[in-house]
């Protein structure tokens, strides 16, 4: 289990680094935008609210280490300040609204893209140089080169506006209230389809290429030659012997790429007005809501670190060599 402990240590360190960055960046910025922010809010917020916001950011007027301590103390109490865009809601409450939707959209599309891309990569490597292998990768590279949100806009234009077969925005129909009824779940799925498809289209090529090159390496290994020599069926060699080994570096890459794909999926949310963190992010940027921006940065970082740790647990399960160590 030493492997998992080491990874956990890395994530704790990364969590601390992002908390600290969150503290430092407003103070390092030239022109003191934080003060400017407080000055601008003076008209908008009541004096108590402004004081609370200063507190939460650690702008207490004391020396830096005291400010840092005050900031951390508020953070660990779950106080990220008040949102300006959604005043008087607390940032934590605003974030809570969007977290589930982002997890649903990003989670489902990343898993589908990874599974599909890996499968395509396995097949392409197995039939290297064949028709499938020569046509699909360039096509998917081209698709993947478009900005995620651009593909999202095109899908929205095509299927939403022109063909009018799928909903244009939001996570479920306005006429429904969240419940576990069939009509609500169906509506959620219907609203998920287009944004998820655009994320899958944009990211599947990357997974395919990395799985393909990992497979090509594995196919040259002696244990694959042995599997052929043993007279096993091609499907068994391809998946049980080759793909299972080729998957390992890709699972590590999955954790690393998660943050990157998430960036794209946040922008996709904006196109569909999908009520997740990305949608909140654009609201925050437009109304210069610094507390909300920073809150989003922290929650998303924590979520990505947690997801990375889950991927590590999966890795240990997949690779017996990491278990003893």
């Amino acid at each position: 289990m030493r492997y998992l402990l080491r990874q956990l240590g890395l994530y704790i360190l990364a969590a601390w680094a992002s908390l600290t960055l969150n503290f430092i960046v407003p103070r390092l910025a030239p022109g003191d935008p934080a003060s400017a922010m407080f000055a601008r809010y003076k008209g908008q917020l009541q004096p108590e609210a402004l004081a609370a916001l200063r507190e939460a950011f650690g702008f207490t007027g004391g020396p830096l280490h005291e400010q840092y301590a005050a900031y951390l103390a508020h953070l660990f109490r779950g106080d990220l300040g008040v949102s300006v865009a959604y005043f008087p809601a607390k940032v934590t409450d605003v974030l809570a609204m969007g977290l589930g939707w982002t997890a649903l959209l990003t989670g489902s599309s990343v898993v589908v893209a990874f599974a599909l891309g890996s499968l395509l990569g396995v097949i392409a490597a197995w039939r290297r140089g064949g028709a499938f292998d020569t046509t699909l990768p360039p096509l998917l590279v081209f698709l993947g080169a478009f900005p995620y949100f651009w593909l999202a806009m095109m899908l929205l234009y095509g299927f939403g506006f022109t063909l009018d077969v799928l909903p244009l925005r939001h996570a479920y129909a306005d006429t429904l209230a969240p419940s576990l009824s069939f009509s609500f779940v169906a509506s959620v799925a219907e609203h998920l389809l287009l944004p998820a498809t655009s994320i899958v289209l944009a990211s599947v090529g990357g997974w395919m290429l990395s799985m393909r090159s990992s497979m090509i390496g594995v196919l040259a290994e002696d244990y694959v030659t042995m599997a052929h020599a043993k007279g096993l069926s091609p499907l068994r060699i391809m998946f049980h012997y080759a793909a299972r080994n080729a998957l390992l570096p890709n699972v590590t890459g999955f954790g690393m790429a998660l943050g990157f794909v998430l960036g794209g999926s946040l922008l996709t949310e904006i196109v569909f007005s999908y009520p997740g963190q990305g949608y909140l992010l654009v609201q925050a940027v437009r109304s210069q809501d610094y507390p909300l921006m920073q809150g989003i940065f922290l929650t998303i970082t924590m979520a990505v670190l947690a997801a990375n740790f889950l991927v590590d647990v999966l890795y240990v399960w997949l690779d017996p060599r990491t278990r003893g160590r």
Binding site: V25, M256, L262, G263, L281, Y290, M293, T301
Partner: peptide
């Protein structure tokens, strides 16, 4: 590795905003 696991876009937004 720390910089790799911190998601880029949200950090970029905070940096760019300030």
């Amino acid at each position: 590795n720390v910089s790799l696991v911190i998601p880029g876009l949200p950090l970029a937004v905070v940096l760019a905003a300030y």
